[in-house]
Nucleic acid binder design. Structure first.
Lengths: 252, 252
DNA sequence: CGACGGTTTGAGTCCGGTCAATTGTCGTGG
DNA sequence: CCACGACAATTGACCGGACTCAAACCGTCG
């Protein structure tokens, strides 16, 4: 197995990370619970630091391209990226949006099997594949951690298949919003709103729809009084119950 | 991470497996390259044998149910099973068909997240989760093997998402046939036909279509002269080129 | 202010779903 | 060996949800 890897974290955590950098040697990865380094024994962080390189990319920039030789493993440190695959005629399927702490590379082989593009300015850690694998060999807990993450991603992927294959447009949109809300609540317990950092077109390509259908879906949820569309891409969920039920695909 | 696990192999290999059973202590898993045991040091096969139990199920029988507590890891030894998830109102999405040697359990957590049902009479190995994890702890290569498999499954899952979200009915069917053909060719190099062990309804639930659409799709491919529908669910591919191009989603 | 990209809204079409009837296949038992 | 029943597969007629094409709207930034 050949892999290439990466991880993400948030801009407002940069201060903390810098503070830890001196101690750990890795500014970006210092947010231990957010990155693959979570499994590293703290005294050995410098081992990771020795192979990592820090990068940044602007919104719209491509980090990796499908088909390129997989030379690295990434740790996304900073806000959001989208991962997608293309069909020859340009049809696009976004397989996932990655957030701070997410790993990039578990699903790759010798060549990258997807393209990764920044949605917002993004910071990330880059690990040369060979060296990363050597580190993984040295620290057994990291391997366990990677397997656990891969396992979780597989469960999520299957959930995604149900959504793509068997849910209606309206249910897809509700599912998408609920997923974002749950993520928001993992950070801020009582949150009742989410911020859409991606365009309607991105959402459409994620849900297997068109921009128009997504837009209509949102307005319909709005007119039903279940959500509220605010400025800056913010969406307030007003009736979580109803939305959750729709997302689950309850029988009418 | 909590997991439950399993693996499959073919009936016509039973003789070999029995022959090896004496040496290894595990009749079903003895086909080493087909199972999770592929990563076991040969002298230590008895370690696996000590925790495995062998089971069989008839066609249509359920091996695992979504939501049940994940107590085991399975190794499918014998022909085909389908893995699916259900929506509350009964809509079904088949997330994959598993063949001999495939592992079952990588995508599970504390509870099974999918239901697994036998398509044909099936033999499989059952590993109690806790004990299996202990064995994995003892034999490092097994962990590597599991991670590699999980990685491959993730790549496949993303491919599946593209298919579900962005391909037309006709393209989906072509993709399905090409995938089966490639699998057949991994066994029999020059094979130009595949056997459909599953019903049209299963295929439909795998491709996110209805039985009628699948049926129409097959007949259309037949009338175009690209495939031939024989008895016993056998399908002969007459124009691999054309089918492959359609499956890839070439721009008309 | 005007230009540009993204979003919303509208009108019309079509692919795939639904409903229903027919045909085919296979196993069982007379 | 054939008749029968059960179920899978096919075919046909029709419908509707999501797509397409097109225009209007809006927010942001020079």
């Amino acid at each position: 197995m050949a892999m290439a890897y990466a991880a993400l974290s948030t801009i407002n955590e940069q201060a903390d990370r810098r503070a830890n950098a001196a101690a750990t040697g890795c500014a970006n990865c210092a947010a231990r619970d957010l990155s693959v380094c979570g499994a590293m024994p703290s005294g050995d962080m410098s081992r990771v630091a020795s192979i990592v390189s820090h990068r940044r990319a602007d919104a719209g920039e491509t980090l990796l391209s499908e088909g390129d030789k997989a030379m690295h493993f990434l740790n996304i440190v900073d806000v959001t990226v989208k991962v997608y695959k293309l069909l020859p005629d340009g049809r696009r399927q976004i397989t996932g949006f990655l957030y701070p702490g997410d790993l990039l590379g578990l699903a790759f082989n010798d060549t990258y099997t997807s393209t990764v593009e920044a949605l917002t300015p993004v910071k990330y850690c880059l690990f040369p594949r060979r060296q990363f694998e050597r580190v993984v060999d040295e620290f057994r807990p990291m391997e366990k951690q990677l397997l656990a993450r891969a396992s979780n991603e597989l469960v999520a992927a299957q959930e995604q298949m149900v959504m793509l294959g068997r849910k209606t447009a309206q249910e897809k949109i509700a599912s998408f919003l609920m997923a974002l809300l749950q993520r928001a609540r993992r950070v801020n317990k009582a949150s009742d709103s989410v911020v859409l950092t991606m365009t309607r077109s991105d959402i459409a390509d994620y849900l297997g729809l068109t921009t128009e259908t997504v837009s209509r879906g949102f307005t319909r949820l709005k007119t039903e009084g279940w959500i509220e569309l605010c400025a800056g891409g913010k969406v307030r969920i007003r009736d979580t119950e109803a939305l959750a039920e729709l997302a689950a695909g309850a029988d009418c």
